[in-house]
Design a protein around this nucleic acid. Structure first.
Lengths: 116, 116
DNA sequence: TTAGCATCTATGAAGACTTGCAGATACTAT
DNA sequence: ATAGTATCTGCAAGTCTTCATAGATGCTAA
């Protein structure tokens, strides 16, 4: 039971572990968007946008509302934004991802120093 | 730049997208723990615990403190707990993962109903 | 009905993650 | 130095994710 809860939380975070999906959620702060709008705003194929939205949909993180031939997406629970805000706070505390960020900045620099 | 931030957030969430890693973090609310304690508490191989801790370490989510032959782990920034709390809130709102949870409960039940 | 647009789903290839296990490293005690 | 314990890293097989492409579905307008 305890384990199962951890699994569900893990699955939830997994749904957030994709750059496009994060970007989409951030953009949905402003209100609902269609697949087409999302695909244009982030310069990805409509099919790709739809795929990633399906991931969020399957976890009930976003809700789809069909109107005519368009589908409008919005977040199911605005608490998700609070989650993103806390994540941002953690970044601002300069405590998370420091190593990763530095590695990214000195991108591909052939540093080969002692391992420990 | 905007994209890069999304990528880092995504990487951060990806580090949380694993049942054992979530369980470990939850347990670290109580204070620091050694690899050995963690491996016993969750009935996994020490190597496995160490591997998952390495993932959290690489994102600076946890910090290792070596004392004698033991390594004590603790969270780098307690804000992470707030993140987990918000995630719990979202679950309690019955708004996230409902479909997934139901599927899990009626596990493997050969239901084949209309898709929409 | 037909054409066109919006969206979804199926498929496959490339890459990433998980898991268990074996071996390496580090510390402690003898 | 040797043995024992704690932890870490490397590797391989199996699994999952991503991304692009192609085709399917649904709606709208003529």
């Amino acid at each position: 039971m305890r384990q199962k809860l951890s699994s569900f939380k893990a699955e939830f975070f997994k749904a957030l572990s994709h750059p496009l999906r994060i970007s989409i959620l951030d953009e949905l702060r402003e209100g609902e968007l269609t697949v087409n709008e999302i695909s244009q705003k982030f310069a990805v194929e409509p099919a790709n946008a739809s795929q990633q939205l399906a991931v969020l949909r399957n976890k009930n993180i976003v809700t789809a509302r069909k109107e005519g031939s368009n589908v409008y997406y919005s977040v199911t629970d605005k608490t998700v934004f609070k989650l993103l805000d806390v994540a941002r706070d953690i970044f601002n505390n300069h405590l998370i991802g420091v190593r990763s960020i530095l590695e990214e900045i000195h991108l591909e620099q052939p540093q080969k120093k002692a391992r420990r």
